Computed example of a mutant assay.
Amino acid sequence: MNFENQAPRPFTRSSSQRMLGGVCAGLAEYFNVDLNLVRAGAVLAAFVTGGTAVLLYLALWMIVPEN
């Protein structure tokens, strides 16, 4: 495989499949996984980390550009 000519894909928030900020939908598109799986993981991470994942989500919402 030749990786020299492939430009990296930009990570962007989704504007079409968003519930709040589109961060989970953007992650699902970027990694090509099911959106519901990413959302369930985000909710689980919010409970397991005691809310730190919510702060990370909010930071990504502000930093990551929308497509």
Score class of each variant (00 low, 15 high):
residue 1 M to P: 14
residue 2 N to S: 12
residue 2 N to L: 08
residue 2 N to V: 13
residue 2 N to P: 15
residue 3 F to C: 06
residue 4 E to D: 13
residue 4 E to Q: 14
residue 4 E to V: 15
residue 5 N to G: 14
residue 5 N to K: 13
residue 5 N to F: 13
residue 6 Q to F: 15
residue 6 Q to T: 15
residue 7 A to I: 13
residue 7 A to L: 13
residue 7 A to P: 11
residue 7 A to K: 14
residue 8 P to H: 08
residue 8 P to G: 10
residue 9 R to Y: 05
residue 10 P to T: 08
residue 10 P to R: 03
residue 10 P to W: 08
residue 11 F to D: 10
residue 12 T to E: 02
residue 13 R to N: 04
residue 14 S to T: 02
residue 14 S to N: 03
residue 14 S to V: 04
residue 14 S to D: 10
residue 15 S to E: 06
residue 15 S to K: 14
residue 15 S to H: 13
residue 15 S to P: 14
residue 17 Q to A: 15
residue 18 R to I: 04
residue 18 R to Y: 08
residue 18 R to A: 06
residue 18 R to S: 02
residue 20 L to Q: 13
residue 20 L to D: 14
residue 22 G to Q: 04
residue 23 V to D: 02
residue 24 C to K: 03
residue 25 A to V: 09
residue 25 A to M: 08
residue 27 L to C: 04
residue 27 L to N: 01
residue 28 A to Y: 03
residue 29 E to N: 12
residue 30 Y to S: 06
residue 30 Y to E: 00
residue 31 F to W: 11
residue 32 N to C: 06
residue 33 V to F: 08
residue 33 V to G: 04
residue 33 V to Q: 01
residue 33 V to N: 00
residue 33 V to D: 03
residue 34 D to P: 11
residue 34 D to N: 10
residue 34 D to S: 13
residue 35 L to P: 10
residue 36 N to L: 13
residue 37 L to G: 09
residue 38 V to H: 05
residue 38 V to F: 06
residue 39 R to Q: 01
residue 40 A to L: 06
residue 41 G to R: 00
residue 41 G to Y: 06
residue 42 A to T: 12
residue 42 A to W: 05
residue 43 V to E: 04
residue 43 V to Y: 06
residue 43 V to N: 10
residue 44 L to Y: 11
residue 44 L to C: 10
residue 44 L to F: 15
residue 45 A to C: 00
residue 47 F to E: 04
residue 47 F to G: 08
residue 47 F to M: 01
residue 47 F to C: 07
residue 47 F to N: 01
residue 50 G to F: 02
residue 50 G to H: 03
residue 50 G to A: 06
residue 51 G to R: 03
residue 51 G to Q: 00
residue 52 T to K: 06
residue 52 T to W: 14
residue 52 T to M: 12
residue 53 A to V: 03
residue 53 A to M: 00
residue 53 A to I: 00
residue 54 V to W: 04
residue 54 V to C: 07
residue 55 L to G: 13
residue 56 L to R: 04
residue 56 L to Y: 01
residue 56 L to A: 04
residue 57 Y to L: 05
residue 57 Y to F: 03
residue 57 Y to V: 05
residue 58 L to Y: 08
residue 58 L to A: 07
residue 59 A to C: 12
residue 60 L to P: 09
residue 62 M to D: 11
residue 64 V to R: 03
residue 64 V to T: 07
residue 65 P to W: 04
residue 65 P to C: 00
residue 65 P to R: 05
residue 66 E to T: 15
residue 66 E to P: 15
